[in-house]
Amino acid sequence: MTTGDTLLRRLPRVRAGGLLPILVILGVLLILVAIRQPGFLAPGSLMSFLGRSAPIILLAAGQYFVIVSGEFDLSVGSLVTAQVVIAARLIDGEPDRTWPVVALVIVSSAFVGLVNGVITTWLRVPSFITTLGMLLILVGAVYFWSDGSPKGELSEQFRRFGRRAFEDVPVFGRVPYALLVVLVLALLAIVLMRSDFGRTLVAVGDSPRAAELSGVRVARTRTIAFVLSGVAAGVAAILLGGYSGVSFQAGSGLEFSAITAVVLGGVALGGGRGAVLGAMLGALTLELLFALMNFSGVSGTVRPAVQGAIILLAVAVSAARSPSD
């Protein structure tokens, strides 16, 4: 058709799945924040903001591995809740139990990811259903186990990861531990995506048939993605438990925040396109947007609606711009 060019296709041609769009959005938001709340960009408050954003950035990275391989992980929010509640009950205020419980949180989160992966790939249950089931099982189990209200408390040693910082650092002011954790893990994630595993993971998401016929173990590769998502949720649980404390709401809705962040970062739902850095920047952008809304006096209760709108808009834009080949 002569009029096949839609308005969206005429946007400047940037590499699909590239980082430019999310960097532009992030930049615009920073400018808006600077206008409305100049103090926010002072080193101290900026660093605190980055530290606060650490859990969602980690969850976005975890979700990225799963989405880019062509699947979904809806269980991460309730996994965070479950881990926070379980950790509190197991530690019960005893500092000595901190490290064993930290290890347990991470290992058991990886195990939950493993179960998600095995059910999805070997039993061929669509991941949407698998992880939805896992979400319900985790929520139900943790309510059942704690008789309806969280028991025990986290030790101060456990909580420091989420709320302490190196104070009086030159230039930066304060550097939250959480920020260091997320920086290290983000770097690992980026390196991982440049490795053989990372490139293969993306290939699996784009064309599982071609990957399999090139000798890729598709089921195993996808299962590892679920394990990584689980581990990311475990680390996020440790940071969030420290920051905001123990409650049944600790992780609620985080799976959708993570998916929104990933999509915002230019990662295609359905797999095969996008960068892990984009997903993490997407998370940062989402948090910045909510901060801006907060400064502008918009109620936080509108968050889910905003996330929903972002998902729909981002997917519509990418669908309109990718050729229908």
Binding site: G17, R199, V202, A203, S207, A210, G215, G272
Partner: peptide, 19 residues
């Protein structure tokens, strides 16, 4: 079954070796 359409030429060429 042959190409991974949205990956680069190099990624496509290396797919089997990486696997």
């Amino acid at each position: 079954e042959g190409i991974v359409a949205r990956q680069s030429v190099l990624d496509n060429a290396l797919l089997a070796g990486r696997a």
